[in-house]
């Protein structure tokens, strides 16, 4: 067939438009191939998320004291705390290993922000119950919050025989209360710090000049050594004039080891008691005299309820 240039306008338009089509599609493709990932990131960045800090401490107790941590809703945490006698009791008592002060207790998370606990301590044959409420959560991202804050309230009932049965004794004299504000910040993956302003109220105090309302500030810190091991320190400063005569500020040092659902805490402390009213206001042993107890806490969690997805 002989070639004849066409004079019809249609094919021209077709060629022209095809050319533009091809050109623009190459352009479009080039743009897309380099940018699908960044397009996606831009798209997801439109909805910023709040990043809540987790695992400020390994467990709900730093050493003796409550940490900012809660058990989650529907989770039970069984805790066995054991303090041997003092190291300075000598070889006859095998440096304290012959004696023991024990608290057995269980904590339960009613919701993720509210937990309760019950326990019984051998020291002063004391029963205790407490409630801990999350007020603020440390976060970054869409919502920013520098610290986590929880409120703690505990009630304590000792069942010792009356030391002076001849005088008129009131049942209410057995009761103590503790109120704490727990303020913590996780500064880095490894380091967390907590401040705990505390009020302990004792219905009955030993001395006539002792105040019933006892004020103190706790300071606690943890430094991770590995992912599953950390060193903790905890100290309570009792405000002069608001402390019991003869009481000593408690200082404790601990090592946390975590394996799956268990947390083991090995500790040295100058406090014999394990409940708040006991260790904060009732410690008498001095570190400098070797009045130091070796001890441990064992915690095991059980998931009872189903967690909401």
């Amino acid at each position: 067939m002989k070639y004849r240039p066409s004079t019809l306008p249609v094919p021209k338009v077709l060629f022209l438009s095809l050319g533009i089509l091809a050109g623009s599609s190459i352009l479009a493709q080039k743009k897309d191939t380099t940018d699908l990932m960044s397009m996606l990131e831009k798209e997801t960045a439109r909805k910023p998320v709040t990043n809540y800090t987790i695992a400020t401490f390994k467990t709900t107790r730093l050493i003796n004291a409550h940490s900012i941590e809660h058990v989650a809703g529907g989770v039970m945490d069984v805790k066995i705390s054991h303090r041997f006698g003092t190291l300075n009791s000598g070889f006859y008592e095998l440096f304290g290993l012959d004696n023991a002060s024990i608290r057995i207790g269980a904590d339960y998370g009613i919701t993720d922000w509210l937990m309760i606990g019950l326990g019984r301590a051998s020291y002063e044959k004391q029963y205790d119950g407490f409630m801990k409420v999350k007020l603020l959560r440390q976060s970054s991202g869409a919502k920013k919050m520098p610290v986590s804050i929880s409120g703690f309230a505990g009630m304590y009932y000792n069942t010792l025989k009356w030391s002076e049965p001849d005088r008129e004794n009131y049942e209410t004299s057995r009761i103590n209360y503790a109120f704490q504000l727990l303020i913590a910040r996780k500064f880095s993956e490894g380091f967390s710090l907590q401040l705990s302003p505390t009020l302990v109220h004792k219905n009955l105090v030993p001395g006539a000049d002792d105040p019933n309302d006892l004020l103190s500030v706790g300071i606690g810190a943890r430094q991770k050594l590995t992912k599953r091991m950390s060193v903790n320190v905890e100290y309570y400063y009792q405000v002069p004039g608001y402390k019991l005569e003869g009481s000593v500020n408690p200082l404790s040092i601990g090592l946390d080891i975590e394996t799956g659902g268990h947390v083991f805490q090995f500790i040295f402390t100058n406090s014999t008691g394990i409940a708040e009213n006991q260790y904060i206001t009732g410690t008498t042993g001095e570190w400098s005299n070797g009045d130091v107890h070796f001890g441990f806490n064992i915690a095991r969690v059980f998931t009872l309820g189903k967690k909401k997805k």
């Binding site: 987790i54 695992a55 058990v71 989650a72 809703g73 989770v75 993720d112 992912k227 599953r228 799956g260 659902g261 969690v301 998931t303 189903k306 967690k307």
Partner: peptide, 12 residues
């Protein structure tokens, strides 16, 4: 399902 598992997943 377990809160602690979630924590360990993220943390450890």
């Amino acid at each position: 399902k377990r809160a602690l598992m979630e924590e360990h997943f993220n943390e450890n």
